[in-house]
Simulated scan of single mutants.
Amino acid sequence: MAVQIITIEDLNEFRSLLLNDIKEIIQSKPQQTKQWLKSNEVRKLLNISSSTLQNLRINGTLTYTKVGGIMYYDKADIEKLLHGNKVNAIPTLFK
């Protein structure tokens, strides 16, 4: 059996090749985003309480789908809500 010696340069080259391969895999894989979010995910995303989320449901501001006691929210509806309530800031002058 022949003995092979691995040098630090060999290890660094292997490391570089491995990192490049991993980067290619990550970049080529399309990012999948969830279409349906659960209540806790929506609360974290919008930084709101359970009661605020309930009020958004009750007054029809945010639509939802209920399946087996779990409420799901369409991410597109949340984005529409955020874009629909966008406020243009008017700069104020300090005197």
Rank of each mutant, 00 (worst) to 15 (best):
I22L: 01
K75E: 10
S49I: 05
D77F: 06
S28Q: 10
L19R: 03
G69D: 13
L53R: 00
E41V: 02
L62Q: 04
F94R: 13
I78N: 09
I25H: 00
L93S: 00
G69K: 03
S16V: 12
Q4F: 15
P30D: 01
Y72N: 06
L18G: 01
N12I: 14
I26A: 00
T61V: 08
N47M: 14
I58E: 10
V42K: 10
V42H: 06
S39F: 04
K75A: 05
T63D: 11
D10W: 07
E9R: 11
R43G: 01
S51W: 04
K80R: 13
K29W: 05
G68T: 00
L81K: 15
L93K: 05
Q54K: 09
L37P: 00
S51A: 12
L53Y: 08
T61D: 04
R57S: 07
G84H: 08
S28T: 05
F94Q: 09
Y73W: 12
R15L: 12
K75P: 03
V67Q: 13
L53P: 05
K75M: 05
E13Q: 11
K38V: 10
V3C: 14
D21E: 04
I78K: 13
K34D: 05
A2S: 08
L62G: 05
I5S: 15
G60R: 13
F14K: 13
N12Y: 13
Q32P: 04
W36T: 00
L81S: 02
S50G: 11
Q4M: 14
Q31D: 06
T7C: 09
V3L: 14
L56I: 06
N85R: 12
E24Y: 04
K66V: 06
L18V: 12
V3W: 09
T92M: 09
T65Q: 09
V87P: 07
I8L: 09
S39M: 01
N47A: 08
I90V: 14
L17F: 15
G69N: 07
K75Y: 15
A2T: 12
G84D: 10
L37Y: 03
L53M: 00
N47Q: 15
I78T: 10
I8Q: 12
Q4N: 14
N47K: 14
L17K: 10
G68M: 02
L19N: 02
H83M: 08
Q54C: 11
S39I: 00
L81H: 05
N12S: 10
E13V: 09
P30Y: 00
S50D: 04
Q27M: 06
I58R: 15
S16N: 12
R57V: 04
L93W: 02
V42Y: 06
K44N: 10
R43H: 08
L17D: 12
M1S: 13
F14H: 14
K80E: 13
N40P: 01
K75Q: 13
Q54V: 01
L18M: 12
I58D: 08
Q27N: 08
R15C: 13
P30R: 00
S49W: 07
V3T: 07
R15M: 11
L56E: 08
Y64S: 15
S50L: 05
I5P: 00
G68E: 01
K95S: 13
L17I: 09
L37N: 04
